[in-house]
Design a protein around this nucleic acid. Structure first.
Length: 346
DNA sequence: TGCTCTCTGCCACAGCCCAT
DNA sequence: ATGGGCTGTGGCAGAGAGCA
């Protein structure tokens, strides 16, 4: 039986959608909530910046010919997929042919990927094939745009056959993800992408260079680094074949740590807001309550969020009941998904 | 009631402070 | 100088809620 399953819309006709990927803290279920606030508060917007984009679902929701989307993520994996889905403005010839070529690759040989990730995160056969496909992409991709699409296709395909619970902090002990890896083509709305800008930058650096009507901010909330959770996909996307360490086979990630997971998160947030050049700010930041492990508590407290945003304009809090995921050992009561809205006046 | 989805529990260890 | 206590960060291995 196929695992893992997706509660999002299923891929059809050998294609996949931007949201068909497992990702920590993804906002797919909250798009309606976000849309309602933008509709109520932000009239006639011409640009929307999703500065901690992740998979990019929020930016995609506002992606129309008359709205410029600025979509940014610090991880190369996400950047590649954002480029493919939100930055490709005309159909790429032969991309489905090349996906067919990659799917029909035959290999029984070990390679970098299978050496480290075979029989752990993937079946040995799938790991060999994934490594072979990634190597072949380097050979057959003729343009950067085409390469982004092929890597994106591989990232989404890999996610479906990974022997994990959705991230790569650990692999499951029972290796039962045996269905063969299969690449599909991304379903891209080229006509909406003509004026979009995609970045792979530290948000606090990028904020100094951009202007937008709506700035949507969805930073990490606690001490868990996304680069720890997605090291394997980052490794695969970059294909620099670094040394990896530990049971989880992680590469060096010291260059892709987020301040928002660290104790100086509040200072980082304050710096971001001070330097924002926009009319409206929407901040997603959860009230996660007190978990037993302090590591999982939100890094920025409510008083600081309000103080910092009120320095920028008039603030309103929108709240929707939301049963946050918990492994059951923490008190999950009182969790709410919140959006801080700031009408910028300063 | 079994399946799917999602992020926490817990241990290790480094670095710092402080008492002895 | 030594070592206990405390805090912050890194790392491994799933557990349990919610839903069909």
């Amino acid at each position: 039986m196929d695992k893992p399953y997706f509660h999002f819309s299923k891929a059809q006709n050998n294609t996949f959608q931007l949201q068909n990927r497992r990702y920590l803290g993804n906002k797919y279920k909250l798009l309606g909530f976000i849309e309602d606030i933008v509709a109520e508060k932000c009239n006639g917007i011409k640009s929307f910046c999703d500065i901690f984009a992740g998979t990019g679902v929020v930016g995609e929701r506002f992606n129309k010919p008359e709205i410029k989307i600025i979509s940014n993520d610090f991880l190369f994996t996400n950047y590649v997929c954002l480029k493919a889905f939100l930055g490709t403005s005309s159909p790429i010839q032969n991309v489905t042919d090349k996906i067919d070529i990659l799917n029909s690759l035959k290999t029984a040989q070990d390679n970098y990927f299978s050496k480290y990730f075979g029989n752990t995160y993937f079946s040995l056969e799938n790991a060999r094939k994934i490594g072979a496909i990634r190597g072949e992409i380097e050979r057959i991709a003729e343009t950067e745009e085409e390469k982004n699409i092929l890597i994106c296709s591989l990232i989404y395909a890999v996610d479906k056959v990974a022997n994990t619970v959705g991230h790569y902090d650990a692999f499951r002990k029972d290796l039962d993800m045996l269905q063969p890896v299969k690449l599909l083509a991304p379903n891209i709305d080229h006509l909406n992408n003509g004026n979009n800008d995609i970045y792979k930058e530290d948000a606090n650096i990028l904020i100094r260079k951009i202007v937008c009507d709506v700035l949507y901010i969805d930073p990490p909330y606690n001490s868990r680094q996304y680069s720890d959770a997605y090291h394997l996909l980052e490794n695969l996307a970059e294909w620099k074949k670094p040394n990896v360490e530990g049971v989880a086979k992680k590469m060096d990630r010291s260059h892709i740590k987020s301040s928002y997971c660290l104790k100086n998160a509040t200072q980082a947030f304050e710096d971001l807001i001070k330097n924002a050049n926009c009319k409206h700010i929407l901040l997603s930041y959860n009230n996660t309550g007190d978990s037993k492990d302090g590591r999982s508590n939100a890094r920025i407290n409510d008083n600081d969020i309000l103080r910092i945003l009120k320095n920028k304009g008039e603030v309103e809090i929108f709240e929707r009941d939301y049963k946050a995921f918990t492994a059951g050992k923490s008190n999950g009561d009182g969790n709410a998904e919140r959006i801080f809205y700031c009408n910028v006046t300063k």
